[in-house]
C-alpha cells in the first residue's frame, strides 16, 4: 500500500503572540526573531495516521512538501518518525503559494509518483487556516475526499473514516484511492529520539523543481490576497470584587456581570 502525506512547513503557531506582528504593506506576518518554522501540526496528525496504517498492515509512506528555501532539518523529522521517503518540491516560484497553487504543484508531483492508494493531508494549515489543499488535490485528481477525519481504518480497498462535525461525529466510507484530511483527534505524531533524528539527516531525499514537474505557477488562475491587517487592539478593564466570604463575592460578581450587561 502506498500512502502519500502532504506536509507544510509553517511558522510556529505556539510563538509569542506579543512578538508577532503584521506587515500590512508586504501582506506578511512577521514572527518574533529566532522562531524556527515547524511542521504544520495537522499535517503531523496526518503523518501519524499514515504511520499507524504502516504499523498495522505495512505500507510505504512518502511525504511531499512544496515551498522555497525549505528547512530540511524540520522536514526530515517526518523520516525520523518513520516515513520512508521525503520529496521536496523546492523552487523560487513556490514561495508564498496559495491553496490553489499548492494543490496544483502537489498534484504534479503525485502524478509523477503515479502509484498511490491513499493521500493524507492535515485538515488546515496553522498559518493560513484555509483548509483548501486537501479538497483541491481531490478535485483535480477527481478522487473522493473526506475532511476532518478523527478515525481512519483501511480494509478491503476501502477507507472507513469517522469525521468531526459540529454536533458530533459522522462515519463515512470511501473507496480507495481517496484523499483524507486529518484532524487533531486522529492522534498526536509520535516523538522521535535523538538517534532517529540524527539518522534521518543522512537519508537521501528527492528534490524536484518547477521545471522537473512541468508546472508554471504563474499561469494558474488564483484568488489574490487583498489585504492583511493586525486584529483590532483589545483593552482590558479588570475590577476586583471584594467581599467577606466567597459566597458574597460570587453574588456581587453576578450582580456586576448583569449590570454591565455581559450576560
Amino acid at each position: 500500500m502506498n500512502i502519500l502525506v502532504c506536509m507544510k512547513q509553517v511558522p510556529d503557531p505556539q510563538a509569542s503572540s506579543s512578538g508577532t506582528t503584521v506587515d500590512s504593506e508586504a501582506k506578511k506576518v512577521i514572527m518574533p526573531q529566532g522562531t524556527p518554522p515547524v511542521l504544520n501540526p495537522y499535517d503531523e496528525n496526518a503523518l501519524e495516521a499514515a504511520l499507524k496504517i504502516k504499523d498495522a498492515q505495512g505500507a510505504k509512506v512518502t511525504v511531499i512538501s512544496a515551498g522555497k528555501n525549505m528547512a530540511k532539518t524540520v522536514l526530515r523529522k517526518s523520516i525520523a518518525v518513520g516515513a520512508d521517503d521525503l520529496i521536496l518540491l523546492e523552487d523560487a516560484a513556490f514561495e508564498n503559494m496559495n491553496s490553489y497553487e499548492t494543490a496544483h504543484v502537489l498534484v504534479a508531483a503525485i502524478k509523477e509518483i503515479g502509484e498511490y492508494d491513499l493521500i493524507l493531508c492535515g485538515r488546515q494549515a496553522a498559518d493560513t487556516d484555509a483548509g483548501q489543499v486537501g479538497s483541491g488535490i481531490a478535485s483535480i485528481l477527481n478522487l473522493p475526499c473526506v475532511t476532518a477525519a478523527c478515525k481512519l481504518d483501511i480494509s478491503d480497498g476501502k477507507a472507513m473514516v469517522q469525521r468531526v462535525v459540529s454536533d458530533g461525529f459522522e462515519d463515512v466510507e470511501a473507496p480507495l484511492p481517496a484523499v483524507i484530511t486529518a484532524s487533531s483527534e486522529i492522534g498526536e505524531m509520535r516523538y522521535p529520539g535523538v538517534k532517529e533524528i540524527m539518522a534521518a539527516q543522512k537519508v537521501r531525499i528527492t528534490s524536484r523543481k518547477a521545471s522537473d514537474l512541468g508546472v508554471d505557477v504563474s499561469q494558474l488562475k488564483k484568488p489574490n490576497l487583498v489585504s492583511l491587517d493586525s486584529p483590532p487592539g483589545r483593552t482590558t478593564d479588570c475590577q476586583m470584587v471584594e467581599a467577606e466570604t466567597p459566597e458574597e463575592a460570587g453574588a456581587d460578581l453576578a450582580v456586576k456581570v448583569r449590570e454591565s450587561q455581559i450576560l
Binding site: Q33, M70, K72, K77, Y191, P192, G193, M198
Partner: peptide, 23 residues
C-alpha cells in the same frame, strides 16, 4: 547569526527534542 539561522529552520537537529520538551 543564530537568530537568523533559527528563523530559516537551520539548526542542529539534536536541538529538536530539547526545544519540543521545553515547550
Amino acid at each position: 547569526m543564530r537568530f537568523k539561522m533559527i528563523d530559516n529552520g537551520c539548526y542542529p537537529p539534536q536541538d529538536m527534542p530539547l526545544i519540543d520538551h521545553l515547550k
